[in-house]
């Protein structure tokens, strides 16, 4: 139980060289900016803080709660780190976590580490902080918690989407299988992530409100993050159905599986970590499903946030 691998860590060999290097370059850019900002803006005090926060994320991933049928929900923590520590520190913390997971536990590869950091560190920081930053100045606690919940859910889903796309671009997996499988699982994992993030944040708002003061949050990242967060979120919400509808993605297997006919009735099974649900949908139905899902989560988060607030009042 000491250490449970999270299902988003791509091992070496799964991505081709071009994809790996492109994402290493992108990650290098973000981590480089994060490092230079840390160098300039913050004293040496921040380094121990970030190291211990990285250990916190690592240890928090051991927290689990029973869901059903022997499976358990886990906490990934990227969105929470970005919201509380700020996006740049969040990126550095997640970089350290992913590097140690890859080096020490071979959970995730070296050559593909750039992609792993981008999926789980950079993307979660952009969406997590960006969406939370929209309402960070608001006095409405429920609204803030709801935004954090949606951000946590969407960042998990977006990471799964990007992972699926990377595997597809590398010719490792077939898009029409890996995309619904990855999205399917992480739509659920994301809900667990959102619930934990919201509860953790509600706890922090009561015990250490100073950490989450509006000026404090605003100082950690400007409105550029809001724009980036909204744009990336929109891309993630709109890209999933478009990728699913890609004509290339409906070739032989699509015909063999015959899922165009059977549609949503196709049977699927949930494995502990991954599912292989041979779900086939049209672009429109997926877009609607995605939007409905987003609204359901939003509603749920407002509800949960409201309940938590009432209890504290």
């Amino acid at each position: 139980m000491h250490y449970a691998p999270a299902p988003l860590h791509i091992p070496d060999g799964f991505l081709n060289l071009v994809t790996s290097l492109v994402f290493w370059a992108l990650t290098g850019l973000f981590v480089g900016i994060a490092l230079s900002r840390t160098n300039k803006a913050l004293g040496e005090k921040q380094v121990p803080l970030m190291g211990i926060m990285a250990a916190f994320i690592f240890a928090a991933q051991m927290l689990n709660f029973p869901v059903a049928g022997g499976t358990s929900g886990h906490f990934l923590g990227g969105a929470l780190a970005a919201i509380v520590l700020g996006p740049w520190a969040g990126i550095l913390v997640m970089t350290a976590v992913i590097a140690v997971q890859a080096l020490l536990f071979q959970d995730g590869g070296l050559l593909v580490m750039g992609a792993n950091i981008f999926n789980m560190g950079v993307l979660t920081a952009i969406i997590g902080f960006g969406l939370y930053r929209i309402v960070s100045a608001s006095a409405n606690k429920t609204l803030k918690l709801a935004a954090a919940g949606v951000a946590a859910w969407l960042s998990t889903v977006a990471a799964a989407l990007l992972t699926a796309l990377q595997l597809w671009l590398s010719g490792t997996s077939r898009l029409e299988i890996v995309l619904p499988a990855m999205l399917g699982v992480h739509l659920l994992i994301g809900i667990g992530e959102a619930l934990i993030t919201v509860a953790a944040l509600a706890f922090l708002m009561q015990t250490r409100p100073d950490l989450l003061e509006a000026e404090n949050v605003a100082a950690k990242g400007g409105t550029g993050w809001v724009i980036a967060g909204i744009l990336v979120s929109l891309v993630a919400v709109l890209l999933s159905p478009l990728a699913s509808a890609d004509p290339d993605g409906l070739e032989r297997v699509a015909e063999d599986l015959g899922f165009l006919d059977t549609g949503l009735d196709a049977p699927y099974q949930i494995l502990p970590d991954y599912t292989i649900p041979f779900l086939g949908e049209t672009a429109l139905s997926t877009i609607i499903a995605g939007l409905v899902g987003a609204f359901v989560v939003l509603g749920l988060m407002i509800l949960v946030g409201g309940l938590l607030k009432k209890r504290s009042a």
Partner: peptide, 10 residues
């Protein structure tokens, strides 16, 4: 249960 886990994370 998720909420309890969240409080533990906090």
């Amino acid at each position: 249960r998720a909420q309890i886990t969240g409080h533990m994370a906090g």
